[in-house]
Write a protein that binds this DNA or RNA. Structure first.
Lengths: 254, 254
DNA sequence: AGTAGAGTTCCGGTCATTGGAACCTAATTT
DNA sequence: AAATTAGGTTCCAATGACCGGAACTCTACT
């Protein structure tokens, strides 16, 4: 029959297919049927069936009583060994908790991952506003404080590359003009912190600062709050202290 | 050339090989070289090289500047979608935090996973003793409080199956005699809680209770403390309250 | 310069993988 | 109750992706 390359545009290895199936899951879709997986992974039903069966055997997928597939415990378990969880998340946690105590607002920690802001941790939610970010979730780089920070400290080439692709509009306030965004990024890097106003969620704003190691921005810490609550100078101060504290924590060993 | 089945005993699919490589990583070995992966996965170097390259392309592995491979951010990200993290962990967290406030000791939450106790969460460590358990890590079922609970509430057949295989000895106090362990499990289920005394770590003991849903034990909550600090009746009381609280939390929506 | 070890590339043979088609099952409609 | 639909599973012939031994390159250490 036709080779693997016919279905999708490029040839995909067996392992690539497995990853493609696992990649169909996201925060909105945590339980998928075989048909849904077939549709989203762009694989034929019979191939999806086989791949899924192999992933189930390996503990990477589980089939619920509702006939839907979910990410298996084993993926979570192995994922705990990723440096982002093992090194960054665990070391930053106490500082983030302190930051939450000081501000009473949502605290987020994010890293750059595959062209998006990956939320490594999020503390808060009870006393503060509801946010779109969730630990493990991705958001665009240009609509949030932490995203702008992560992008602004990238190399000029990487920034240009990001600007060359169309910028998604999440809210009416999202900056989707590459020229305006570039100005915003330059300003962000110059002053040392980023601000976003209703660019990701209506009514919410965010302030974020980089965690720098050897000139590289390895992560960003941010505060998400109701736009009217935001005392930017004060938030920047506590955030910079926190970023410094996390940086030192990361330096301690290794 | 010889087929896939020659190297290992049974034939392994390509996806199975990928999972085998990812499975080489654990808490003790978070950064592995290609040779180490080849040795541990039982795959030839050239095959390992190809599989690893595919996993790197998919974002499931990353190669550090030290030429060692680590679990990629993407595995962590996808793993966050697993029910164990998404449902159990997040819902139980506030209760576990409260339990920690009340006792000042290490609090653990574990589920049964592949014949071992999988530690879903662990709170404490500053005021209390140092423990072997870590979120994402596995420990044997017969050497810890949570493990005994998870095993005791299994079906008689599952218990027999576990007892039929040799029981690992972690400390001189570990129960490795199947007959003794069986008695211990019956007693555990009758009284509703499990106790372990230096069976996993010297000097430490643990008490644990089940979180039951529809007669099934879906998880276990436990306290790990210095043997001399353990006020068992009091710990059982607060643990049972906590288990009840988590059970209600899980019932709330689906 | 020499050596050892780790990592990478090459390549022919072959069998695991592939996907269309047929089949089965459960749910919904007529 | 029969018919229909959708979702899921099994079958199977064809084939090219995968396999791993061997050769090669690179790095580190003597």
């Amino acid at each position: 029959m036709s080779p693997a390359r016919t279905t999708a545009g490029a040839p995909i290895s067996s392992i690539g297919r497995g990853i493609a199936v696992l990649g169909c899951f996201n925060e909105r879709r945590r339980a998928l049927t075989l048909s849904e997986l077939s549709e989203k992974s762009l694989l034929p039903m019979s191939s999806t069936h086989r791949v899924v069966a192999e992933l189930v055997t390996g503990g990477f997928l589980v089939r619920g009583s509702d006939r839907r597939y979910r990410i298996g415990t084993r993926v979570w378990s192995i994922g705990q060994l990723a440096p982002v969880s093992d090194q960054l998340r665990h070391r930053a946690l106490p500082t983030l908790a302190r930051l939450y105590e000081e501000t009473g607002e949502n605290i987020t920690l994010a890293v750059l991952d595959r062209g998006q802001a990956l939320y490594v941790d999020r503390i808060g939610g009870e006393r503060s506003v509801h946010t779109a970010s969730r630990a493990g979730g991705h958001l665009p780089l240009h609509t949030t404080g932490v995203g702008k920070v992560l992008l602004a400290w990238q190399s000029p080439e990487a920034i240009e590359k990001y600007l060359s692709r169309p910028l998604t509009r999440t809210t009416p306030y999202s900056i989707v003009d590459p020229v305006k965004l570039k100005t915003e990024l330059v300003e962000t890097k110059n002053r040392g912190y980023a601000v976003a106003r209703q660019e990701s969620t209506a009514g919410n704003g965010s302030v974020a600062v980089p965690i720098l190691r050897g000139g590289r921005c390895v992560a960003a810490v941010g505060v998400v709050a109701h736009l009217t609550h935001m005392d930017i100078p004060r938030l920047v101060e506590v955030l910079q202290q926190a970023a410094d504290s996390i940086r030192k924590e990361l330096e301690d060993d290794h």
